[in-house]
Each structure stands twice: as C-alpha cells, then as structure tokens.
Amino acid sequence: MTTSSTALTLQPSQLAMAISNPGALGTIDAYISTVNRLPMLSAEQENLLARRLRDDADIAAARELVLSHLRLVVSVARQYLGYGLPHADLIQEGNVGLMKAVKRFDPERGVRLVSFAVHWIKAEIHEYIVRNWRMVKVATTKAQRKLFFNLRSMRPDGQTLDPHQVDEIAANLNVRREDVREMEVRLSGREISLENQNDDDDAYAPIAYLSDNGRADPTQVLARRDEDVMHGSGLDKALEQLDERSQRIVRARWLQDDGGATLHELAAEFGVSAERIRQIEVAAMKKMRVALSA
C-alpha cells in the first residue's frame, strides 16, 4: 500500500520529523490538517503491514501503520487540553505511545490496531501530564493517578466535596476516601510564581522572603570554610613552619588586637635595622602562604 500524492505532499523525512515534533510543520493546525488527509487502512491492509513488520522487521510497514493512525492521536490528545499543556506536546507524547503500540501489535489477535493503540496513546499522555502539570508531583501511586484523571470531571462545578460525595467517588473508583480528600486538596491548590510576573516594584513575591541570602551558596560555603581554616588550625600550622624570631615578628605585627608593633619597635627589640625586620617579615609571610596553600 502506498500513500497517494494528493493526500500527502510531504517527503518521508519531513513527515518523520513531524511525527516526533508536530510543530515542525509550522503550526499545529497545519499538522492536524496534514494528518487528517492521510489515507486510512482497511483491515486487510493493516494485517498485511503488521505481518511484514512482525516477520520481516519491515520499517516501511511500521511507517505506514503509524501514519494511518496519527489522526487517532490528535483526537485522543484533544481530550486532555483542559490540563493547560500545549496541544502539540500532547500529540507528540501520544505519537510515542502510538509507535510503541505499533511495535507490539499482533495481527493474529483479531483486533484492529486502533483499539490496541488507544490504550498506549493514553498511557503516554497520562505520564506526560503527571510529569509536567505541576512542579510538585500530584499523582505518584496508582490510586492517585486514577483520581487525578477522574476527580476533575466528578466534582460538581469544581466545588468542595461533601462527605456523601467523597464516599460516592471513593466507591466508584475503588479508592480510599482519604485518597479522595487528599487529591481534592491538591487539585484545588493554586501555584504561585517565585518571582514577580509584572513590572510592579512593590509586589512582594516569595523569592523575597524564601532567599537565604547566600548562606547555602556552595562558593560562599567553601570560602567561609577556608577562612575558618586560615584563622584556626591552618594558621597555627603555618606559624610552626617559622623559626622563633620570625614567629615573634609575625605575631607582633599581625596577630595583635591593639594594632601590632612597628618595624622600629621590633628592630630595637632584636638589635637590627627596621629594614632587616621588614625582610624577615616578607620571607616569613611567603613561607606561610606556601604552607596554607598546601
């Protein structure tokens, strides 16, 4: 079976790109228009292609099966637009599910690919929605996923559920009433942007009071640690590398609370010139820097 030229004006490489990225055709409307013009397969054509794929690993047959069911993905993805996610992204994820279904389809089971594929398409879209609907994951267990995709439509006018409604929903979905309450709270929650979304300088966004002023910044943590070492055990070890006179000069010049001794005062103490004290100080500081950096 070949695709008619009137139904498809794209080259195979272009359409392959469109399958993985519906936006590749320019707009989502252009993509939908294109896939809706693709010819559908009869049961006989579908079985023939499925056997070629199964028995001969025929990639061309897989391509025909995928192309003929792209409109199904569009239809299924449209049902999930209420979650606020881009239609093109929903279709893209649904296409992944369709390709998985085509790979696993067995023509000998006596069912059409459309019936088999719809479950894989929905599963892939569900997974995408759960991953991306909110930054905080709202459905991590099987019961929560069931509630996530049903509770929105079962809540009358989005109002808070009364105890009777909670019990009824829990019974219908075969989940605990506590799970119903928990998911209701999660779905009713409102997301808040960390930063201001407008030009109002007076707006008070959470980023203003959630910041720790750099206390957890790795570079500052390391800098403070190095500083503590410099003023603690590291300094003592560096001083130990000096002779007694050099230690006395460094301590007197730099480690006194009263401002330290002058070169002339130390020169008088050791009976040498002030220039000699300066030379000893420079050599001692150089040796200490080497010790501290080791």
Results as ranks from 00 to 15, higher is better:
residue 55 D to S: 05
residue 56 D to H: 15
residue 58 D to H: 10
residue 58 D to W: 03
residue 59 I to H: 15
residue 59 I to D: 15
residue 61 A to D: 10
residue 61 A to Q: 05
residue 62 A to Y: 03
residue 63 R to L: 14
residue 63 R to K: 13
residue 64 E to F: 07
residue 65 L to I: 04
residue 65 L to K: 01
residue 65 L to G: 08
residue 66 V to S: 07
residue 66 V to C: 14
residue 66 V to F: 08
residue 66 V to D: 02
residue 67 L to C: 11
residue 67 L to E: 06
residue 68 S to H: 02
residue 68 S to C: 13
residue 68 S to L: 01
residue 69 H to R: 05
residue 69 H to L: 07
residue 69 H to Y: 14
residue 69 H to P: 11
residue 71 R to W: 08
residue 74 V to D: 13
residue 74 V to E: 07
residue 75 S to L: 11
residue 75 S to G: 12
residue 77 A to L: 08
residue 78 R to F: 10
residue 78 R to H: 13
residue 81 L to V: 09
residue 82 G to Q: 06
residue 82 G to K: 11
residue 82 G to N: 12
residue 83 Y to D: 09
residue 85 L to G: 09
residue 85 L to T: 05
residue 86 P to M: 05
residue 86 P to Q: 08
residue 87 H to R: 08
residue 89 D to M: 07
residue 89 D to A: 12
residue 92 Q to N: 11
residue 92 Q to A: 15
residue 94 G to L: 01
residue 94 G to R: 00
residue 94 G to V: 04
residue 97 G to A: 11
residue 101 A to I: 00
residue 102 V to G: 07
residue 103 K to I: 09
residue 103 K to A: 15
residue 104 R to V: 02
residue 105 F to H: 05
residue 107 P to Y: 03
residue 107 P to S: 11
residue 107 P to L: 01
residue 109 R to A: 02
residue 110 G to K: 00
residue 112 R to L: 12
residue 113 L to N: 01
residue 114 V to M: 01
residue 115 S to P: 02
residue 116 F to P: 02
residue 120 W to L: 04
residue 121 I to W: 01
residue 122 K to N: 11
residue 123 A to I: 05
residue 124 E to Q: 14
residue 124 E to L: 01
residue 127 E to S: 15
residue 128 Y to F: 15
residue 128 Y to M: 06
residue 128 Y to K: 00
residue 129 I to E: 04
residue 130 V to L: 07
residue 130 V to G: 03
residue 131 R to M: 10
residue 131 R to N: 12
residue 132 N to M: 05
residue 134 R to H: 13
residue 134 R to N: 11
residue 134 R to C: 09
residue 135 M to W: 10
residue 135 M to F: 10
residue 135 M to K: 04
residue 138 V to I: 05
residue 138 V to T: 10
residue 138 V to A: 12
residue 139 A to K: 01
residue 140 T to C: 09
residue 140 T to I: 09
residue 141 T to P: 04
residue 143 A to F: 05
residue 143 A to V: 03
residue 144 Q to S: 14
residue 144 Q to H: 13
residue 145 R to E: 13
residue 145 R to C: 04
residue 146 K to E: 15
residue 146 K to A: 15
residue 148 F to W: 04
residue 149 F to H: 07
residue 150 N to T: 09
residue 150 N to Y: 07
residue 152 R to Y: 10
residue 152 R to L: 12
residue 153 S to K: 04
residue 153 S to L: 09
residue 154 M to F: 06
residue 154 M to N: 10
residue 154 M to P: 06
residue 157 D to R: 08
residue 158 G to A: 13
residue 158 G to E: 13
residue 158 G to T: 09
residue 161 L to M: 07
residue 161 L to E: 12
residue 162 D to M: 06
residue 162 D to C: 13
residue 163 P to D: 14
residue 163 P to Y: 05
residue 164 H to K: 13
residue 164 H to E: 15
residue 164 H to L: 12
residue 165 Q to I: 01
residue 165 Q to P: 11
residue 167 D to T: 12
residue 167 D to S: 15
residue 167 D to V: 03
residue 167 D to Y: 06
residue 170 A to G: 12
residue 170 A to N: 10
residue 170 A to M: 08
residue 171 A to Q: 11
residue 171 A to W: 04
residue 171 A to V: 03
residue 175 V to W: 02
residue 176 R to S: 15
residue 176 R to H: 09
residue 177 R to V: 14
residue 178 E to S: 15
residue 178 E to Q: 14
residue 179 D to M: 03
residue 180 V to D: 00
residue 180 V to T: 06
residue 180 V to I: 02
residue 181 R to A: 12
residue 182 E to F: 06
residue 182 E to M: 05
residue 183 M to P: 07
residue 183 M to R: 00
residue 184 E to W: 00
residue 184 E to D: 14
